[in-house]
Each structure stands twice: as C-alpha cells, then as structure tokens.
Simulated scan of single mutants.
Amino acid sequence: TSVEYLDLLNSPDTKFNNITVYYDGLNHYASFNIETQPPEQLPLTGEHIGCDINSNKNGWLVTSEGQNEFFDVDHDNQMIKHINRLMSKCRNMSRRWKKLEKRLQKWYNKRTNQLNDYIEKLTYNLVKKYDTIVFEENYSTIKILIGGEENMMFPLSRFIKRLKDKFQLYKPEADGVQFVKAHNTSRRCHHCGYINKELKVKTRNWKCRKCGKILDRDTNAAINILNRWFNGDSLK
C-alpha cells in the first residue's frame, strides 16, 4: 500500500461509505468506498488527439501523432499455457494438481493486475496531455490481441469509461472523449481527401494516387478521425 493512499485513508476529511471484502482464489482483499476532497484540477493544454483502435499486432491503439500502444503479457500467457499443460497430465485434485492450480491462479492474478495498472496509468497520462480524445463510434466491436492471443479481449469499454471518469474528475471543462463515424477513415488520404476503394485490410502502407503521399494505414485513420471532430462531425 502506498504512503499516499494510507494518508488519504487516515485523513480527517475522508468519509467511509462501505468496505467490500473479496477473494481472488488465493488472497482476501478489502475494497474501500470513500468520499474525500476532490483532486487538484489538471490545466487545459489546448491539445487534441485522434485514436485508431486496431486488431493487429502493430499496436492496439495508434494516435494521430503516430504513437503506437502495446500491452505485452506474452510471458504471462506462455506460463499459463505451460501450467495448464502440466495440470492436464495430473490426476484431478491430486496434491500436485492443487499446487499447480495455485501457481496458475497467481499468473492469472498477475496478468489482471498488470492490465488494470496499465489502463489506469495510460488513461491518466492521456487526460493530462490532451483536452480532447477522439475515437470511432464502433470501438466496442473490435477484438484486440493481447500478446498475440486471439482468445483474449482488451477491455475497451472499461478503457473508454476510465478516460471519461478521469476527464470528469480532473478536467471537467475539457471536451473529453468524443466519437465520430468510422466510414472510410482508413481509405481516405488525410492530405487531399482521395478515397482508395481498393485498399485491402492487410495493407499497412499505401500510396495516394492523387497526391503521391505514402500513408501508414493506422496513423492516417487516426488523423482522419481527429479531422472529423475538428470539422464538427462528432456524434452526440
């Protein structure tokens, strides 16, 4: 537990509403619901960014500034697979099986904690730097690869919700999270507006036939997403 968190719990201005105790398969935890003084507001920066969410291995999120976001838990995934294979060779509920089950639960918990920590830090840093973060409206329907695992889902809805929560908490006067229509964001050249109707899904870079610009598919889409918001095409 951090010193800052202990100070918050011990503050005379903190009011405890309720405490929830839960069990993750290995340990018991206490969750505190408290009321305290609102945090210091973050200053407006005048910066805005478009975000393209992807289901490929080039980063699950690419921004209009060309930044790629990765969440790598490949080692954790490999360990989970390894332990599952060992358990399949053991007699169910045997002493060795139970020891492996505890090891497996530790890896699951570690992966979950890493993901939660990653989302909290990333959303705070984005809100601190930008006043507006723009996405396509269909973000919740895209399957994200985590560490190359097709059967894992990145919690996009929770990521968006945490962004909204942090804007409300730290920058209530900012435009915050905005959405635009997704039509042709990858196919439209952000330089000249030409639409490449022949662009294939697996094509990561393409050359505009009208202006000759070489475009990164994902960065181009993110720029178009931001431009649509600038043009007043945001969805209410």
Rank of each mutant, 00 (worst) to 15 (best):
N116Q: 08
N17Q: 11
Q41R: 12
E136I: 04
R95N: 12
A221T: 08
N224D: 08
I214E: 15
F16L: 12
T63Y: 06
K106I: 00
T112E: 13
F154Q: 07
N125H: 12
Y5M: 06
R188Q: 15
L169C: 14
N113S: 10
L100H: 03
L8I: 15
K98P: 01
I160E: 12
G46K: 14
R103P: 00
L9K: 08
E136N: 11
G59P: 09
L42C: 07
N27L: 09
L44F: 06
P172H: 15
P43I: 04
D165W: 10
S140H: 11
P39K: 07
Y118G: 01
M152H: 02
L86C: 11
F179K: 08
L169A: 09
S234M: 08
S64E: 01
I160T: 05
D24F: 00
L9V: 12
G25L: 01
T20G: 00
D24K: 00
I53G: 01
K161V: 02
F230M: 04
N84R: 04
R187G: 14
S55M: 02
C90H: 05
E198N: 03
S2Y: 10
Y194E: 06
N68F: 13
T14Q: 10
K171V: 14
F230K: 08
G212D: 06
E47I: 04
K106V: 00
C208M: 10
R162N: 11
L86A: 03
I214W: 04
R209S: 09
Q37W: 11
R188I: 10
K161E: 12
E40W: 03
Y29K: 10
Q105V: 00
R162P: 01
N125V: 07
W107P: 00
N17M: 08
K57S: 15
V134K: 02
D175K: 08
L226C: 07
K166C: 11
T45R: 13
N184G: 00
I83T: 02
N68E: 13
R217H: 08
I83M: 02
A222N: 07
N220Q: 09
L163W: 09
F179E: 07
L122D: 02
Q178L: 14
Y23F: 14
A221C: 14
I19Y: 02
L42W: 03
V201E: 13
C90R: 06
M79H: 13
K121Q: 14
E198K: 07
K200R: 11
H183R: 10
D175M: 06
L9M: 15
